[in-house]
Nucleic acid binder design. Structure first.
Lengths: 126, 126
DNA sequence: AGATTTGTTCTATATTTTATATAACAAAAA
DNA sequence: TTTTTGTTATATAAAATATAGAACAAATCT
């Protein structure tokens, strides 16, 4: 699975890594139950620090996407996000400002929905 | 127009201010052509630094939402975001990771769309 | 015209976040 | 048993965030 990081991006490295790993899951490169590479080996592969990878993994765990087994490794464990769950709440908190921006740029409900559909399709066809 | 800032938020103050001002525009508190308060007066009202407000204003200008007239003030000037415009491109870049998160949380196209509709309605009924 | 307010620019400082670097530890895995 | 694992700790550096104060010229107000 290929991971691309851009040091010049607005997003910090650990965020980019989170995004790439989520992409990998959605594309099927990583499936439920799969082990993620160890923080040391992935850091070496990507040419970044171990702690940066570690931060990404723990953030993914906080988001309910992987499970970290102490002294062992990280496993893909997708959780269903119930409404009112902390995962769902955080998602809404992150989604709001982006929608605000879309609306101030003149996009309506229909336009936003078609954009969302377009982007969703890039990762998963249903 | 009431503006609420949370120093403990994950979002920096200047980002929160950007969001609140966008909300004000969408709710109709600020209309096309309206002047924004001066950076000094708004900073004083909110109990934050002048330069922080200034940063928010310039970011809003970069996003095509207001126009800053040198030595005069800031005016609401909503631009239509054409596809392929830098505004549209940035929006997509910000929207992608949020959608990735939604999908890894198990949400499908329909679920995401209904959430988007729900949030959009909070600001603007069409 | 004169006084005030405006955004702008500059320097300075402090805190937080991000990223890297080393080292050591105990538990798990090979 | 040797290696690898995540964890924890300390340390450093750079960037982002936020505040502070001062000075300037243009715009606005009285």
């Amino acid at each position: 699975m290929y991971i691309k990081l851009d040091p010049q991006s607005d997003f910090p490295i650990y965020s980019q890594l989170i995004h790439q790993l989520m992409e990998g899951i959605l594309k099927g490169d990583l499936k439920e139950g799969d082990m993620l590479p160890s923080v040391r080996s992935l850091a070496a592969d990507l040419g970044i620090n171990m702690h940066t990878v570690n931060k990404s993994y723990h953030e993914l765990e906080k988001r309910g996407i992987i499970q970290i087994v102490p002294k062992s490794g990280a496993v893909v464990r997708l959780q269903q996000a119930e409404k009112e769950s902390e995962h769902y709440t955080r998602l809404v908190r992150e989604l709001k400002p982006v929608l605000l921006e879309a609306m101030t740029l003149g996009m309506g409900k229909a336009e936003i929905n078609s954009l969302v559909e377009l982007l969703v399709k890039e990762y998963k066809e249903e």
